[in-house]
């Protein structure tokens, strides 16, 4: 399974890449929304994990690109420190499938990813 992770904090990105690699995912990571949009078209991932606030272009733009421009149904999980209800709602309205708030537990995120992919938990 291929997973695309867009997260601007380098340490967290490393942790996520390493964790999902160990779970036998084929992981591609990037640190801004613009790269994520390019990589999405290139990699064609099975699932996307994205932060909301990133340099150049954020998670909203990535979700918009996937849902509206590409009209794709790839599952999207938003991983963000924002706890403002409006932002959670608007990312879900835009087409994200799930929202995980930072700080978070890796195991919880892995379970959510597997559930969305319909693989064994």
């Amino acid at each position: 399974m291929k997973i695309l992770i867009a997260e601007d904090e380098s340490l967290l990105l490393k942790l996520l890449v390493d964790k999902f690699n160990r779970e036998s995912f084929e992981v591609t990571g990037c640190q801004n929304g613009l790269d994520a949009i390019d990589l999405y078209d290139e990699v064609q991932p099975d699932i996307v994990i994205t932060d909301l606030q990133m340099p150049f272009s954020g998670g909203y733009e990535l979700i918009f690109h996937i849902r509206k421009t590409r009209d794709a149904q790839t599952p999207i999980i938003v991983l963000s420190s924002t706890n403002v209800e409006d932002k959670i709602v608007s990312s879900l309205e835009l087409g994200a499938n799930d929202f995980v708030e930072k700080p978070f537990r890796f195991n919880e995120l892995i379970i959510r990813v597997k559930r969305l992919l319909g693989t064994s938990v």
Partner: peptide
């Protein structure tokens, strides 16, 4: 700095 960056985003056993 990096210990705090990690602490900021993790919970439970990882924290």
């Amino acid at each position: 700095e990096e210990i705090f960056n990690a602490n900021k985003v993790l919970l439970g056993d990882d924290q």
